[in-house]
Each structure stands twice: as structure tokens, then as C-alpha cells.
Design a binder for these strands. Structure first.
Lengths: 351, 351
DNA sequence: GGTTAGCACTCTAGCAACACGAGTGCTAAT
DNA sequence: ATTAGCACTCGTGTTGCTAGAGTGCTAACC
């Protein structure tokens, strides 16, 4: 028997262990695997291979007389090398498509919220959507509305039905004409430029400007600094937290859920991880400790990016117990991400 | 011994039982109460009175040889009749005041969110804020911005830094002049009128209008119907859910937490209760089954309304186990509600 | 008559002892 | 290389027991 045959056998047994464990949530014994592989190998042989897998760090035993459970490393190997893509049933993908079709009439925030809801429901896990804000897209129009002597409502109309408005107190009172001039300047100068570059561009401008424009640039800077400061880079919609309780491990160890919820209570850390993942192409999976928080090691997420103009602008994810159906989760997030990408394009075309 | 003396003694024992139970979370025996009342009555006497309290439905025994636990009815009587007002320490109320002072520079949504956060932290429970939207206040200004041939950005500038914007597709393309005329009409007609009455008022107008205005009114109706339809009556910010896990009863019976979270996952029911409570003056307490959901009977909330122009426009609340420190919770919600009321006034003055 | 000491009673929490069963690792036979 | 057989390990669930907390009742007390 060649080396690759060995490899292959080890792999298929690891795969079988994971797949059984995912559905049963209790340690998997050699006999179960033997039966699952249609008796092609006896339990004793399976046990020998399991020892190898344990030595390689892919499996572990909760205690001597228990079956085996995948380690984080086992899941990782399974996901990277063994797991095949799964197609959603035409029924499911049809329903998803129709649902998203309906949702895209909503405003951006409500849309992302509901998409998150939907993903949570379809996966039976918690779900999240990392949605772009005005800071990640370009602005189509800037409007200034005086609301009192020294207060301006600054409205940024973005792509994709995104609208951001903010009341800003100006440094000095501005006349109607001054406001109009300022609005004109902002539109001429900044529309089309990525929001990220606005401040840098204006600051550069400030150095090389003649007197007549100086105040315009100065005021623009002041205004936009305030507007952009309060606007986050992206919005995170987490839904279906309740589903985290339904897993058997949650019932066995409620503190684990508690720790996760504590973690989610201030979602900055999670945000940071997602941001990091979205910097690179493709679907990402974080397993157990890879979530990077002491004590939160029983959970995983699967995250797929969605795009606008081929650039990644956000992502959708499923968050559940480490012991989750990664195949299905990946199929779902990728499909939903695809649908969201389509929505982004349609929003732009429609607006 | 007079009847009222009896009454008084029963009351003070019920009060003692509740206060001890709130801190210890385990059934309270007669000896403990006797000691708490400084030995003025022996355990045996306390027991006799406890039997009366049990017959009256204020206390119950988990089992024969356990101490007593307050019933919902017991809590209700305690809250309505026995509980004295509590003042926050000057230290605490000072910190609260300063914190709110800082927060009121934020936009309305962020402000309410953070107030909810703060209340959760101070109470050690979950907290919520029911915040008014544009539908509950009056609008100071209406602005229309064309974003494409048939799309209008409709911006409603409300009191209290509330701004709502919505992109609406018009029934037919409108010229710049038509948009300007529409905006002028809307401002003249609706500013100052409670948002609630807008549609009714316009519909009445539509019947009795001459030809030149007909289309203006028609368009206004169409526009505002869409804008107001998507805007909820109020927003509910729930924070500090994590705290619901820290109570000992949560550890003993995790399903109880689960059921509550399931309930909160779709907060429509909770919203409805709060709405109902806010229709009447004063601080409201909902105890156990009074939350109105089968299976969710171990939790309570304390809710205090805040006002603008003397009208109740929202409320702040603390949500925790039935066995919570109602005195402190009430002191907190009332104080915070007061601070929020002040913020509302200041927002109006400042804008 | 209200109050209280004394006491028998009840029930739970916690612990030890035990049997059971699942699953293992090893050995020897194939 | 594979596998049947078997002794071994260890967690789970059951039973039986004890200690302790708190009760209700009765009879004595003020």
C-alpha cells in the first residue's frame, strides 16, 4: 500500500469522525466509523489509525474510555484540505434569491439587518453582516441644510441608497450664500473621490491654496472631520443570538455561551477580526481559539465577502459552535454574499 | 394589639423576607428574619406570621423544609405599598449627571444607545431605552434633494438632533422647480404640526383644494406615506444582555435565560408592553408573568418615562431577575429618565 | 391571648458505593 | 497488514445513607 493510500485513508477517517461528531455532538468511537465506512475496515484498524490521527494532533480523547473528538487543528485540516464544496438545494437557493429580491427595496441598514436575520434562520446559527458605510464607498452628492444660525445639517448621499446625515456646529455663523458656496465647493471637489481620501486631499489643498478659497477649504475640513469622525468604518449586524443556546454543548456548559455573549457585548474585537479577514480574498473560517479571546474557544465563524465594483466592501457570516456544519455554512455564506453583491450593483444601477 | 399593628408586623416581615431574598437568592428561614429584626420576635412567632403571609399568597415554600420565597403577588404588594424611595448617593448621581452631559453631544441614536449602556452598567442588569423617533415629535424643517430623475432624498429635521432621511421614488419625473415648489409647500404646510397628523391633514386638504395645488398635495401625500411607513414609532435599545447571566438563578436554570433571550430576539412583544406602560404616568414595574409571555416568568422590569414639553415621549428601564433590587432599580431609572428629559430640553434649546 | 421553647417531622443536598457500558489498547492469530 | 478477542479504564447513573436546615405543632409561659 502506497504512502498516498495511507494518507487517503487517514483523511477519510478524519472526515468521517468530523461529520459524525457534527451531527451527534458526542465523542465518536471506532465502531461507528467502521459502520459508516460500510465495514470496509474493522473497528480495530480504525482504532490504529485513530491513534495516528491523535498523535498528529487532529483528534483527541476527552478521557480514556471515550471516543474521539476533533481538535481545532483537525477542523482546520478538514476545512482546508478535505471538505468539498456543497451546493444548496435549488429550493433553498431559490427561496434565498426571492427573499433578497424583496429585501433590496429596503434602505441599506434595514436590508443588511434582514439579510443577517435570514442567514441566521437558514443556518440555524447566529449570523452577522459586516456592512459598508459611507466611508467605504464613494459619495454621489453632498447637501448642506442650515438648521439654525450656526448649525448645518450635512447630508452625504452615497451609492446603494446609503444616506448619512449629521448636524454640525460651524465655527462661525454662515450666510445662506456662504453655505451655498460651500456646498458647491464640496460637490465639485469631493464627489467621485473615495471618502477615505477626502481629508488628506483637503489638507493638501489647504497648503497650496490662494486666499479666496482658503476659508472654503478650512470650513470643509472642519465640517467633514466632524461628520466622518462620528461615522464608523462599517456596521456590524448580529442576529439570531438565541440560536447559540440550542446546541447541546450550550446546555452542557452554559458558561461557554455566557463567555461568548460577553465577548459579543462589545463587538469591537469581533469587528477587528472580520476586518482582518476581509482584507484577503475568499471565504474565511475562524475556529475556536482563532477567535482570539481567552475563554472563547468553543465557537467558530464562517465568513464570505461581498463585493462592489470587484472590491470587497463587506461580508456575511455564520457564527456557531465549533462543531458546526462547515460545508453548509460555507455554501450559505457564499451564496448570500453573492446575492448581496448583486444587490449592490442593482442599487447603483437603480439610483 | 390593634389590627393595624398586626398589619404593620406582617408588612415588615414581608419586607424583610424580600430584602433578604434579594441579596441571598435562596429561601429565607424564620431565624434569619428574627435576627434581622434584632430579635424583637422569636423565630417561632415569625413562623406563625409567615404562615399567614403564605395563606395570603405573598410567600411560598419551594418544599416543606425550605424557607420562604416571595410570590409575584408578594413583590407586587411590596412595590406598591411597602417600598420606600431610595436616593442615589451623591457620588453616583454626580457621575450619572456628568456622563449624560458628555453623551448629549452625540446624535440621538448614539445618545440613547449609550444611555442604555450606562444604565445597564450602573444597575448590573440589562437595560433598555425606548426612544422617540420623528413620528413622536415635531419637525422643524423638511428638505428635498433630487438624487436622480425620479428619486428624491427626503430629509426631515426634527427636534433634538433627530434627522431622518429616506430616498423615495416619485410617481413621475420632477423638474428642479417642481421639487422646490414641493419643498416649499411641505414646509409651509407641515412644520410645527405633529408628525402623527400629517397624513390626515393632507388627506383632508386633498378634498377641498383647488386645481393649482392638487398635484402638490397629491405628491406630498405619496412622498410622506413612504417616508413615514418605513419609520418606526419608536426605537428600542436593549443593552447589557450579558448581565442576565450573572444572577445565581441563571446558573441554576439556564433555560430561563434562554427563554428570555428568545423573547427578546423579536422585541415586538416587549415594545408593546412598554408602549402600554408609557401611556400612563409614573414608574411602572412588570413582575414575572406580567411580562405576558408563557415561560418567561422569572424576570421583571422597572420602567420610568421621560418627557419633552411635559408629554411622555419615551422611557428608560432596567430588566433583570424577578429577584432584583427594585428600590435601587427604581431610583436609577427615575434619575436617568430625569436626565434624559433634561437632555431633550437642552437639545431643543441648542438647535 | 399572644408569645415562645422544645421537639418530632420532612425534605434536600451531598456523598459513597456500586454496577454498567462504552470504548480503548494490546496481543496473538490470520 | 488486518482483525478477533480480551482485559482494562473511566464516566454515567443508581441506590442508599447522613447531616442539616427549616418547618408545624404542642405545651408552657407571661
Amino acid at each position: 500500500m502506497s504512502v498516498t493510500d495511507f494518507e487517503q485513508r487517514r483523511n477519510s477517517i478524519l472526515e468521517a469522525v468530523i461529520e459524525v461528531y457534527v451531527t451527534t455532538a458526542s465523542p465518536v468511537g471506532s465502531e461507528l466509523i467502521s459502520r459508516k465506512l460500510r465495514e470496509s475496515l474493522s473497528p480495530a484498524t480504525i482504532r490504529n489509525i485513530m491513534v495516528e490521527l491523535e498523535e498528529a494532533g487532529f483528534l483527541e480523547q476527552p478521557h480514556t474510555s471515550a471516543g474521539r473528538v476533533p481538535t481545532d487543528r483537525g477542523y482546520r485540516y478538514y476545512i482546508n484540505s478535505l471538505m468539498e464544496a456543497m451546493r444548496l438545494s435549488t429550493d433553498e437557493s431559490g427561496r434565498l434569491g426571492e427573499a433578497v429580491q424583496l429585501l433590496q427595496q429596503l434602505e441599506a441598514d434595514a436590508y443588511f439587518h434582514r439579510v443577517s436575520d435570514m442567514l441566521s434562520e437558514m443556518s440555524g446559527q447566529a449570523a452577522f453582516v459586516m456592512a459598508p458605510t459611507i466611508k467605504r464607498t464613494t459619495v454621489k452628492q453632498i447637501e448642506l441644510v442650515p438648521v439654525s444660525a450656526r448649525k448645518l445639517l450635512c447630508v452625504l448621499v452615497g451609492q446603494e441608497t446609503l444616506v448619512v446625515s449629521h448636524v454640525v456646529e460651524t465655527e462661525e455663523p454662515l450666510s445662506r450664500e456662504e453655505v451655498a458656496a460651500l456646498a458647491h465647493f464640496l460637490n465639485a471637489e469631493l464627489v467621485g473621490l473615495p471618502t477615505q481620501e477626502w481629508l488628506v486631499s483637503l489638507e493638501r489643498r489647504l497648503l497650496a491654496v490662494n486666499d479666496s478659497l482658503y476659508y472654503l477649504v478650512k470650513r470643509s475640513l472642519h465640517l467633514l472631520q466632524i461628520v466622518l469622525a462620528t461615522e464608523p468604518e462599517e456596521r456590524l449586524f448580529i442576529e439570531g443570538i438565541f440560536n447559540l443556546f440550542t446546541a447541546p454543548e450550550a446546555r452542557r456548559e452554559p458558561q461557554k455561551v455566557q463567555q461568548l455573549l460577553y465577548y459579543l457585548d462589545s463587538p469591537e474585537l469581533l469587528r477587528e477580526l472580520i476586518r482582518e479577514d476581509l482584507a484577503r480574498e475568499g471565504t474565511h473560517v475562524r475556529i475556536g481559539q482563532e477567535l482570539g479571546v481567552e475563554g472563547v474557544d468553543e465557537w467558530s465563524y464562517v465568513l464570505s465577502p461581498f463585493r462592489h465594483h470587484h472590491a470587497i466592501v463587506g461580508g456575511v457570516g455564520v457564527l456557531g459552535p465549533k462543531r458546526m456544519d462547515y460545508r453548509r455554512a460555507r455554501a450559505l455564506t457564499e451564496h448570500v454574499a453573492q446575492l448581496v453583491s448583486t444587490t449592490m450593483a442593482r442599487w447603483e444601477a437603480g439610483a
